[in-house]
Design a protein around this nucleic acid. Structure first.
Lengths: 344, 344
DNA sequence: TTGAAAGCGCTAACAG
DNA sequence: CTGTTAGCGCTTTCAA
């Protein structure tokens, strides 16, 4: 439908030079005399010539673009991550193709296929429940990639992620210090590494403080606001929990919403601590105490690792590198001592 | 760096057929005998053949992808919009390339150039301050496109947007009915059509209720949380406003944050009404009264219009169409009568 | 320093 | 129903 633009041939003809010369003016790979360069530049301007990405990609085998696999673009955490990636992509004159896997392994796999077919130069992946398989597949296909946000354990690849175990551990210590003993855990898909780690940190913190782990206090929110609201209702009605750790942002929102529905005061009657510090976290009816994971830096560093790999010559492949981004506990007012019982 | 996959030639050789036959099996443009089809399918499987998008794009002039220009991907409003678009793109086996214009005209223009060079089949644009120029340029270049969220007035193109004037009008009527007379307006870049319209709706509502328009009550938040916090502080300290209309989501967040900083109770001492209903709007310390614009439908419809145009034969170009998505006032608790004065 | 020409992977027109 | 072939726009040898 779109009308065809000028091609390299048109430019060559108008400038009275060969197409090779035009190419060299455009890409600067070989020196071109001042005179010809000028003639070519003028022709380019006049014809509004834009090199065709398709032609170039076909010839060079490089598309100047990278693919990004995200589980949930609506979660602002991932948008901040993307912003960090975008910064790097722009630096390399690349474009980014973001895809929504919805943490569905078949969508993840399909998008990887599609990305390879489209010839992306590399992939940034937030791995879903079967992310390890995807990772293996990418290795097999020889596509440069980096795993971000959620670690794939004992896997040789560039990886950038937060200290989920430590973050979770610190959150629980905070609650325990406030006097809580019955602490719920609101988890996402249990198949996902990050949530496993956060659960582990939770368990370890309990253990280190001599509190028995009760699996009945672990409820599934599936990273979804509505599901989390339901799960939280269960925690409230059917258990004696006095606090909860919500293992990501939408789940904290769901938990908070449930408390509001049920007219349970936060933090007087129930404490909430969440993951991820987003702009509205402090505006909630009880400004949220959170573990911040610094997604912007995660994105930046992941981007840098990817381009390092993309630009490596085939001879010297860089060593796979794992980068752990430190996380930080930000205490606001959604956490306090448990009701009917003084804090220690 | 990535190792080269199998090409159509490899498949043809292995299956013992011509490349044309392989192409026809893949694309189904011409009938192929059962026997050959099967041989080809087997070869495809065996070689893990994936048609090269670059080759196809070069040959057909179609890239099977669309570009999306967004002013601020971090604003969840736009992510919901994108979700609607994505739905349509997936339906057409297309991919989406989202770019962040930051409402900067030169970035907008650059990305349009880039998108054309990359051969996108169409563009969805949320126009920035000089969006009209961009629109004209797209027409000139013959790229199918649709304008979304923010209208370009008196401009022949497919456009999908909300009823900003009406939404704003209704918000003000709501406040006036509560008894407010001194109502502030927190605006984004004044060069952007949507904000002009929202300001207009505000003015018109005041006028219709016999309230004099005071330009001193219009303050700039530039769609930014921090800027809005500042602007709101001004409104609070330097004017006698008792309520404010924040003309998009991040600005409402900023306004709310300011009230929190200044220990001003909402809605008892000050009322806020915002635009865009996002999942946390109801969790704020005062659950936000908002105008919801239904971005999901905007995205869906914009996508449909774009594909209608992309798929049109050059002979029958569809008539440009403007679609207005109705908006809805959702009353929560951030609005009440003004202080020191009973509501009427 | 420049040009001619091959060919990247694919589709489509043409020939059988 | 199938095969042969031209050529999309570009980069990159190879020759001059």
């Amino acid at each position: 439908v779109a009308k065809r633009g000028a091609t390299i041939k048109d430019v060559a003809r108008l400038a009275g030079v060969s197409i090779a010369t035009v190419s060299n003016v455009v890409n600067g790979k070989r020196p071109v005399s001042e005179e010809l360069r000028e003639r070519v530049q003028r022709a380019i301007q006049q014809l509004k010539y834009r090199p065709s990405a398709a032609g170039r990609a076909l010839r060079t085998g490089r598309s100047q673009s990278i693919g990004v696999l995200l589980p949930d673009p609506r979660n602002q955490f991932f948008q901040v991550l993307v912003q960090g990636l975008e910064e790097q992509a722009e630096l390399h004159d690349n474009n980014m193709w973001c895809c929504n896997t919805k943490d569905d392994p078949s969508r993840e796999r399909e998008y990887i296929e599609l990305m390879i077919a489209r010839g992306v130069d590399g992939i940034i992946m937030v791995p879903g429940p079967e992310g390890r398989d995807s990772g293996r597949y990418l290795v097999e296909e020889g596509v440069p990639f980096v795993v971000v946000v959620r670690q794939i354990e004992r896997f040789e690849a560039d990886q950038v992620f937060g200290d989920s175990i430590g973050g979770s551990y610190n959150a629980i210590v905070h609650l325990v210090n406030l006097g809580h003993r019955r602490i719920g855990f609101l988890t996402g898909f249990r198949g996902i590494q990050t949530f496993k780690e956060r659960l582990f940190g939770y368990q370890k913190a309990l253990q280190d403080h001599g509190i028995l782990f009760d699996p009945g206090l672990v409820v599934d929110g599936y990273s979804d606001v509505e599901e989390s609201r339901e799960a939280m209702r269960y925690l409230l009605k059917e258990t004696d929990a006095t606090a909860v750790l919500a293992s990501n942002y939408p789940m904290a929102v769901g938990a908070l919403r449930c408390l509001r529905d049920e007219n349970v005061n936060c933090p007087d009657e129930f404490s909430i601590i969440g993951f991820d510090d987003l702009p509205c976290a402090m505006l909630f009816s009880c400004p949220l105490t959170v573990i911040d994971e610094n997604p912007l830096d995660m994105g930046r560093i992941a981007g840098q690792l990817l381009y390092r790999r993309i630009e490596a010559t085939d001879l010297i492949e860089p060593e796979p590198q794992s980068v752990v981004i430190p996380s930080e506990l930000i205490v606001r007012s959604s956490t306090a001592g448990p009701p009917h019982r003084s804090a220690d």
